[in-house]
Amino acid sequence: MEVLLNNLDAFGSGLRLTIALALTSFAGALAIGLVIAAFRVSPVPPLRAAGAFYVETIRNIPPLVLLLVFYFGFPDIGIVYSEFVSAALILALYTGAFVGEAIRAGINTVSRGQAEAARAIGLTFSQTLGLVVMPQALRSVVPPMGNLFIALVKNTSLASVISVAELTFISKRLITDTAEGLLVFFGTALAYLVLTLPAGWIVGRIETRTAIKR
């Protein structure tokens, strides 16, 4: 137990970096997901194809592989970002594919009649999407978004392989220093729970707050 208490500083700094990584990449993933979903329901065939291509490539490659390719491989073609930016970017791109699919599923739950009525009164495609369809669609995607956020928090541990000093990286370093593998990893698991459990609770709150009163 002492190992954990003596190294609260280290755990704290790792936890902060994990939170920062999760929040920045989730913000990125939301932006990417919205664009991808819009592409996939757009009336323009090339946009639909591009959206489908993005989703099918990114979501079918393990995020660890994406990260390693980006971090170790892309410098060969002149693309070099810092460890943190590399990790945040890859996590955003990866989660973005799933967010896009969740939003598209949300859009599909809104009945065709809504979009047809909007077009009938003269709204453009983007107005239809932004003013009529999306507000209804986003409500139904809150629960899957919560799942994606929790998955993202757990995936931030991948950043440890490229030397981002987040929670998992810090705990691996603590273990080599203290040789207390069981205790340190127990503390690390606990720290992830501290992040993911409240996240699930907040998602539940948002869900009740945004529910349509019928």
């Binding site: 971090y71 460890e83 392989v161 030397s163």
Partner: peptide
């Protein structure tokens, strides 16, 4: 010395990548 990996081959990759 903030960059460290689990294996020396990873260090070699990072060196080759200019990191």
């Amino acid at each position: 010395t903030s960059i460290s990996f689990e294996r020396y081959t990873d260090c070699a990759d990072a060196l080759r990548a200019g990191r």
